[in-house]
Nucleic acid binder design. Sequence first.
DNA 1: CATGCGTGGTC
DNA 2: TGACCAAGCAT
Length: 360
Amino acid sequence: MKRTDRVNFILNDFDKDSYSRDLIKWFKEEQRILPWRENQDPYRVWVSEIMLQQTKVDTVIPYFHHFLEKFPDLKTLAEANEQEVLKAWEGLGYYSRARNLQNAVREVVEEYNGVVPANPVDLGGLKGVGPYTKGAILSIAYDTPEPAVDGNVMRVLSRVLRIEEDISKQSTRKLFEELVREIISHEDPSSFNQGLMELGALICTPKTPSCMLCPVQSHCRAFDEGLETELPVKSSKKKQKKSPYLLLLIQNEKGDILIEQRPEDGLLASLWQYPMVPLQDIDRDSVPHWFYGEYGLNIELGESSGQIKHVFSHLIWEMEVVKAKVVSGNLDHGRAKWMNNSDIEDYPFPVSHQKAHSLY
DNA sequence: CATGCGTGGTC
DNA sequence: TGACCAAGCAT
């Protein structure tokens, strides 16, 4: 069946207007008070949507306040140093979000006269603005009836419309976008989209949904058939690979500590860290020799001062933290430098290395 | 379409 | 403790 036919089939016999009315009424009464809901400033909406990608509201709130204080508008963010932006993002994760956001903001300032585009093509062309974020900004900041399909929306609609497609597949998101195009309120698309997400966050939760409190229970096919905990269908992820490392806290004679900047692309791009010895490849006894080859310094290892684990989505670093002292040699490494302990505020670190620093 | 990309919370 | 989850995007 074609997708258009599928959409018509699914929505045949579904009371869109009544559903939309009940959802919006509930949202207006029960929505949480959140800092990015104070007004419709497209910049604030944009920043919040980027921060909220794969990240809980409670985690985002303090970052949002600090970020808006430091970068109150497009121009301020466009003119900031990238390291400053990353420092404000420190601990939030998915750091390419921050770099893409700043790049896109610079593009808006230069190419769009400092006005966030209100049309899908220009907006969706910005770095880091995908189908969801595009729809969220268009509907929330500009009251445009565009779908904003995230994990919440797919969960809620999987249940309400009893859809059994695997929501981890991209084609499934497109199905939901077409469904939302048919259902969305044209009077208040912002409340409709936010209501769908708010419902997913507060009522229609993944494990134990509060169906008895649900404002659209009477519209829900899954509830009707007792299938609410069977939906949505979501294929499972692979489990992470573990990699062992030695993490070195190395002091020189001045008491400065050795740090290095990660590559500009990939994992934790452009962040700073303490030197890490991959024990997968390097024999423990040959660490000083390996280290001399990489950094030009002869070091003497001290006692182990703890274990730190860094769990990523797709891998796990298991790091043994070891203090070390420089015996001789000169630092010869393109991305490494000595950091005075009081300068730590100048360098964005991943969380695992912030923890390591506390052992220093 | 699958994979890489963080982190903290929950059960 | 491990598995799963959370307002996704780029490649």
